[in-house]
Simulated assay, not measured.
Amino acid sequence: MTTTAAMAFAATLSLPIAGVSFAADLLPSEVKAKVSGELVWHDGSGGATTRAREETVIKAFKEETGIAVKGDFNSDMTKFFAAMDSGASIPWSMIEFPTKGDFIKARDAGYLQKLDPAVVDLKKVGESAHDEYGIDVLRYGIVFTYNTEKFEGGNAPSSIVDLYDLKRFPGKRCLFKYPQFGGVLESALLADGVSRDKLYPLDLCKAFAKLDTIKAEILWWSNGDDAIRLLASGECAMGITWSGRAYGAVKNDKAPLAIKWENSLFSQAVYAVPVGAPNAIAGQAMIAHFISDIEGQKALVNEITYTTDVVGLDSSSYGGDVAPWIVAGDNAKKAIEENATYYAQHITEVVDRFNRWVALN
């Protein structure tokens, strides 16, 4: 596949999703009566994930409430925590935490409002998918991905540890330029022989020593669209991407990509409302609408394959095409859940160590 074709993939995702119908009156009338103005939300995903939401669940929310919705994309939570730590006023009325660890850190710091049960019906999600302050959403794979034009048949890699075998699998490696929710440190430890059940707490010295062995071959990406562009064009032979991004590239642009769940990771985002939100009722209502919108959830998962534990939906609700791409069944058993508690407690130390390592020649 040419670089031009790979870049064209991104444009296709900006088109409306054909055949999607939106249910009306998902929110109680007394809630809708209180919702007005503008809602700015902290978008921890961006790219294809956000475009899919904007054409499905966000579109339905806007149509029902008439509110203006604006996403503010940030690839990690640094900006949010800096604002909250300083006590500065914030623009966001709903926060998407890209990992459960980020959410736990914010919750325990007192930076989040409790969800209002009069607005957010927690019975609409599974018992383990929420607490008083947030809803687990968009469960996603952090998956080993390779270019099938570089490796095929019996010569294809089979596991995330193959990232570190430059002799058998030559070529550039595409990795997320952030140590959390990209599997960078975990992949290094697995390749160094650490067992799945002994990954956490992360041995940072051992992880960076292993990363040193491939550092010259790493191309860093900062958003999911760039990861797909680099892999689909062949600039990278293999890497780690988010599962929905790889699915979208294969589905929409026939990108020459394959994923392997073996020893890959998975995590989930969390929606919450911050203390000091300028339009808190709209933030609460957006979360309530998201977990009530069954048809929107189906349409969203068929675009980006990130599932939410909404009552009445399971892996069979979305059609057979997405089954190999969602975190469920055998896929979930083969993969490893990122340890949210570890990152909530150690993220500052880990990010500092990671940034200093990246900066070294």
Rank of each mutant, 00 (worst) to 15 (best):
L202C: 01
E55V: 06
G101T: 07
R353N: 08
S14F: 08
S187M: 09
A232L: 07
R168E: 15
F97A: 07
A23Q: 15
N155F: 15
S267C: 14
L300D: 02
Y140P: 00
I142G: 00
L204V: 04
S21N: 14
G182H: 02
H130R: 06
T241D: 10
T78R: 13
N263T: 07
A8K: 08
F80C: 09
G283Q: 10
V311D: 03
D85L: 09
V301P: 00
L26F: 08
P91T: 00
S128D: 15
G46R: 08
K167G: 01
V69K: 00
T78G: 12
T99P: 05
N302L: 06
K105W: 10
F22H: 13
A191T: 07
E152D: 12
A255G: 12
F81E: 11
Y271W: 10
A285R: 02
W357E: 08
K298Y: 07
G319P: 02
V125E: 12
R353L: 14
A285N: 01
P117Y: 10
A83S: 15
D226I: 07
S36H: 07
R229D: 13
T348I: 12
V119Q: 00
D212C: 06
F208V: 03
G296D: 05
R53N: 12
K172Q: 13
D165A: 11
G224W: 00
I17S: 03
Q345S: 15
H130F: 06
P91M: 00
R173W: 04
C174I: 10
I228A: 08
T4F: 11
